[in-house]
Amino acid sequence: MWGRLKHAVTPHSHDHADAIRTADEASAVGIRAAWISLAGMGATALLQIGIVWLSGSVALLADTLHNLGHLATTIPLIIAFRLGRRSPTRRYSYGFGRAEDLVGLVIGAVIALSAGLIVWESIRALSTQRDMTHLGWVLAAAVVGAVGNEVVAVYRIRAGRRIGSAALVAEGHHARTDALTSLAVIFGVVGAWMGLPWVDPVIGLLIAAVVIGVLISSMRTVLRRLMDGVEPEILDRLEDAAATVPGVLGVSRARARWSGHRLETDLAIRVDPALSVEAGHDLAHTVDDHLHRHVPHLGPATVHIAPAAALRPEP
């Protein structure tokens, strides 16, 4: 039961064919997901701003600030997707895919800023008693925020995983945190109804703690990609796919790195020393085609060939 529940709230695909394999199509999916979620979050944030102004709820203010942070980071993400579609130049010979990873850092900075504002407002509310009003509207805004953000989260996470975008997945998890924090606002409303006004700012502090947790988790992935880190399973998949091609006697080196939502890789394969240059060239193309059919999100792949007796494993 727990496994099914976890699968439901953290959608993913077991089918590698579900991954989008062309760079242009992947970027188009990312841009569309960003625009659609931007519209959904914008509508939710506008509703919450009005109710915060009427009610004075710190917990709802914290949730609203978090939503506004999402709006601020979605535009740079769209720009990064568009930059990634540009052709390489003499100055940027590897293309502009790294722009997406850099936007991940911007997203982290905005998340950290929103957490700081939430803590500041919550501490002020604890030191200065405030009377909450329009509690029914606050409760309604919390429910709308929870549903709206969860819909955006599911959409972003699914789109991000389909195209291999760490930045888009991070934004999806950020939206899911918003959904949870919107539910937390309900406790603040219940506390106010029970004559416990301190519950609202305490919920604000709890929201800030959750936001910081999301920040740490998201930035770990973004920083790993900026440092050219990949999941070891990716290298295993590359090596296994290359080794199954007839004529490949072994794989002595496999390297890969993310550039935005596309993988770049180079392999060194061992072949029969008697293989002609032309046959080796054809074999390298065959391996390249095989890798692109079996490894999701794969972009440029470089295949080096050498006689089996001459090639030695590299450190």
Rank of each mutant, 00 (worst) to 15 (best):
G97I: 01
M194G: 08
A209Q: 04
A179G: 15
R91C: 11
V138N: 06
G188P: 08
L180F: 14
A140L: 15
A125K: 03
R158D: 09
G116V: 13
R85K: 13
S122V: 07
I207C: 06
W198V: 14
V169F: 04
H134V: 10
W120G: 11
Y155L: 11
M132T: 15
H174T: 10
L102A: 12
S217G: 15
A99N: 01
I216P: 01
T181Q: 11
R161P: 06
P88E: 06
W198L: 14
R86H: 14
L105D: 01
R162C: 04
A170H: 01
G164K: 03
L117T: 07
V211Q: 07
S217V: 13
A99G: 01
L223A: 11
A179T: 02
V154D: 13
L180R: 01
E150S: 08
V214C: 13
T128R: 15
L180K: 03
G164F: 04
M194R: 11
F187I: 12
R124S: 13
G191W: 01
R156C: 10
V110N: 03
A141W: 01
D178R: 04
G213I: 00
M194D: 08
M194C: 12
W198E: 12
V185R: 02
A209T: 12
G97M: 02
V106P: 06
T177I: 11
S114G: 07
A170K: 00
G136E: 14
G191M: 00
L183M: 12
G104Q: 08
I212K: 02
A170Y: 00
R158M: 12
R162S: 08
F96W: 09
A167P: 02
Y155W: 11
I216N: 02
I212C: 04
R98T: 11
F187V: 13
V169C: 06
L205R: 05
A140H: 00
T133Q: 10
A192Q: 10
I107C: 08
G108D: 00
S182H: 09
L126F: 00
L223Q: 09
R98N: 10
I123P: 05
T128C: 13
G97W: 05
R220G: 15
S218F: 05
L135P: 04
E100D: 08
A109K: 07
D101N: 14
E121G: 11
L205W: 01
D131H: 15
P88I: 10
G104P: 05
A142F: 06
L168T: 10
Y94I: 10
A142H: 08
V189K: 03
L113G: 14
L205A: 07
D131P: 06
S182W: 00
S87I: 08
V106E: 14
V210M: 11
I157K: 08
A99H: 03
I123C: 09
A209D: 05
G145R: 09
A141G: 06
D101Y: 02
L139D: 00
M219S: 09
E121L: 05
S87Q: 12
I163V: 04
A167Q: 07
R156E: 13
A115D: 01
L183K: 03
V151E: 07
A184D: 04
G204H: 07
Y94L: 12
D131E: 14
E150W: 11
L102I: 15
Q129I: 10
S114Y: 00
G84M: 07
V199E: 03
V210P: 07
G84H: 00
V154N: 15
G148S: 15
S122H: 09
S127I: 02
F187H: 07
L139S: 10
G188Q: 06
